[in-house]
Design a protein around this nucleic acid. Structure first.
Length: 358
DNA sequence: TAACCGTGGGT
DNA sequence: TACCCAAGGTT
């Protein structure tokens, strides 16, 4: 350790937070205890998702499910629909399961410890720490991507993520102030989100500029260190938008687990790297004259790009849906849990769901 | 441990 | 354009 570099002090960060904290819909007023349900729901929504994307979903979600009891009692399709477009749909399934567990196993109250929270579905190390600290004033570490960046820079931790996580956690615990654990957790995240940004950090405005080793070295942007991820291979497939004469669209529900689990979709072929479009007709839900939409729909998932060729077709009114599928009236399309990629497919086919939340 | 799991925005 | 990134969790 270089003795000439001062130790960072939590008090300096908290003083900065008192002047610069962000006003966010799920954040209580200074000095007030927030509703654990709202803290928890916002934390789940914010997993790997930007504040900007979450805001409108959070507002709608709270209006629709004001309490953990209301959420627990809601049908799963309604929960999935409220989440549609936000991504990482296992979060929505786990959120619903967690609400039910809180009602059935915890008398409708969230556990107030990290350990108790961690045992609930969809709550991992970060979320347990965040909810414990923010909602229950527990002295817990909430290490998210922001905190990883702040801490690796502050101490110039050159170990790659995720291997460096235990050390980062140690550092955060060592920095915890005697009081205000919830504010400290949020201050650390606010600092990462507004000052200690991935690129062009505003070090001149940082309350920890003096003790920051990376700033002293001039290597701020080289932290945190992490291995590059390989890009997945593009997968291809065909999607079939079938319109009945009364305007209804043929849909089905995807299996509960896996990619887009539990979400609604138009029938498609399998999605494969070696998919042959020539045989697409065999993958159609019904044998009829399909029209290819000129421009395929491209979509990028976390681990692979997808290119779907869209086919449109029409059938007479009163045509029954094939087994396992349903015709949804155009006016009720907005009630279906349609993923982002399916909204793109429908748009490419000229179908515009009205009032869609996504 | 590493792969899986969405989507939109920034550079 | 092609990356990177965002209040991660599960298997």
């Amino acid at each position: 350790m270089d003795a000439s570099v001062p130790m960072p002090r939590a008090a300096d960060l908290l003083a900065w937070y008192d002047r610069h904290r962000r006003a966010l819909p799920w954040r209580a007023e200074a000095g007030e205890r927030p509703d654990p349900y709202r803290v928890w729901a916002s934390e789940i929504m914010l997993q790997q998702t930007t504040v900007t994307a979450v805001k409108p979903y959070y507002e709608r979600f709270m209006a629709r499910f004001p309490t953990v009891q209301a959420l627990a009692r809601a049908p799963s399709e309604e929960v999935m629909q409220a989440w549609a477009g936000l991504g990482y749909y296992s979060r929505a399934r786990n959120l619903h399961a967690c609400a039910k567990a809180v009602m059935e196993n915890h008398a409708g109250r969230f556990p107030d410890t990290e350990e108790g929270l961690r045992a609930l579905p969809g709550i991992g190390a970060y979320t347990a720490g965040a909810v414990a600290a923010i909602a229950f004033d527990r002295p817990a570490a909430a290490v998210d991507g922001n905190v990883e960046r702040v801490i690796t820079r502050l101490f110039a931790i050159a170990d790659e993520l995720p291997g460096a996580r235990p050390l980062i956690r140690e550092k955060v615990l060592a920095l915890l102030p005697a009081g205000r654990p919830g504010d400290f957790a949020q201050a650390l995240m606010d600092l990462g989100a507004t000052i200690c940004t991935p690129r062009n950090p505003a070090c001149g405005l940082c309350p920890w500029r003096e003790p920051c080793r990376a700033r002293i070295e001039g290597t701020q942007e080289s932290f945190p260190r992490k291995a590059k991820k390989k890009a997945g291979q593009t997968r291809y497939g065909a999607a079939f938008v079938l319109t009945r004469a009364d305007g209804a669209i043929l849909l089905r529900t995807r299996p509960a687990k896996g990619l887009l689990g539990g979400m609604a979709e138009v029938p498609t072929s399998e999605w494969r790297a070696d998919y042959e479009l020539d045989g697409a007709a065999q993958d159609a839900p019904l044998p009829l004259r399909w029209t290819e939409v000129p421009q395929p729909v491209r979509h990028v998932f976390t681990h692979f790009p997808l290119e779907l060729t869209v086919f449109t077709g029409a059938v007479p009114a009163k045509t029954p849906a094939p087994a396992g599928m349903r015709f949804t009236p155009l006016g009720r399309l907005a009630e279906e849990p349609l993923s982002g990629v399916m909204v793109k497919v429908l748009a490419a086919a000229g179908v515009k769901p009205t009032g869609l939340s996504a």
